[in-house]
Amino acid sequence: MRDNEVITLAHGAGGRASAQLIDNIFVEAFGAQDEAALQDSAVLDLPTLTAFGNRLAFTTDSFVVSPLIFPGGDIGKLAVCGTVNDLAVSGAVPMYLSAGFILEEGLPISVLRTAVQTMAKTAREAQVRIITGDTKVVAKGQVDQLFINTSGVGVIPAQININSTLADGGDVVLVNGFIGDHGAAVMLARQELGLEASMASDCAPLNGLIADLLQHCPDIRVMRDATRGGVGTVLHEIAHASNVTISLDEKSLPIRPQTQAICDLLGMDPLFFANEGLAVFLVPKSQADKALAVLRDNQYGRHACQIGQVVKTEQSLLYINTNFNSKRMIELPYGIQLPRIC
């Protein structure tokens, strides 16, 4: 199968072309699996799972980002990181992924190969295995090039209990890096605005960083992956779920000048820009320094910092202390911030 070929409806028909596609693209990238992988289901060995913990975490996510390749990542990397991070912030050790591909007729094979290869590379980094998958081809115009769905299974160790309802008075709010990088990078990559800036997505698998954190600070109760709705949406959900008031400190927010400039120009708020390698952690105050040190020790947490605190219980509220000692409510935005961001 040559890279100058394109996907045709035959590749999705289950015949010889389908088999070639699976062999040449998927099996080649995801590596030689045992025979079970090419059957109708992947079969998971229970003792292998229970060695890690006593509960399963199971999640799914679909990826429709446009453009397919952007500074800092592509749809393949995103498809693995998105699901790995969803599992990791649930306190789980990510183990296995499935991958479903919806291909548009006419898609260059080279584009698919690149995406699949970055998926494989990212999966190796995250130490997860892609063990089952599916491919469908639809007629031109019925999807835009390539959509990917991944589902993932992870195992939660017995002592770990992560839940958005468990934020408590005094907890500090930490993030592991700059806010809004992915949203800003994808927006610039689309070149619809005629703006240029050096900006890369933060897309990264965070399970290693989170494992380090849980090992050193096992009392962490709330972790969230701040993807599509950004840090603002996640904190809103935590404030609501735990019925607490969270205050943020405007001058502590790690926002790159490029991201802030784009937001100022378009009337948007970086707190609601998407991230793909950024998590929000609520940590008991006594463990804040230790947690920050652990985060900063990891390549994906160099710019970790404290951005706020739970200041009150029994009232669900999210606000920001401005640089001028005034307070501003942070309300969820209405309508679309940016479509097809992930």
């Binding site: 008075g169 005094g170 008031t245 205050s247 400190d249 502590s252 105050k285 404290q306 951005i307 706020g308 605190q309 739970v310 200041v311 009150k312 219980t313 009232q315 509220l317 606000y319 202390n321 307070k327 501003r328 409510m329 309300e331």
Partner: peptide
């Protein structure tokens, strides 16, 4: 609606803000 829904003077922090 976005900025003035909550009267902040009725919402004093119970936990010290150290940021």
């Amino acid at each position: 609606y976005k900025y003035k829904q909550i009267p902040f003077n009725e919402s004093q922090p119970e936990y010290s803000e150290d940021a």
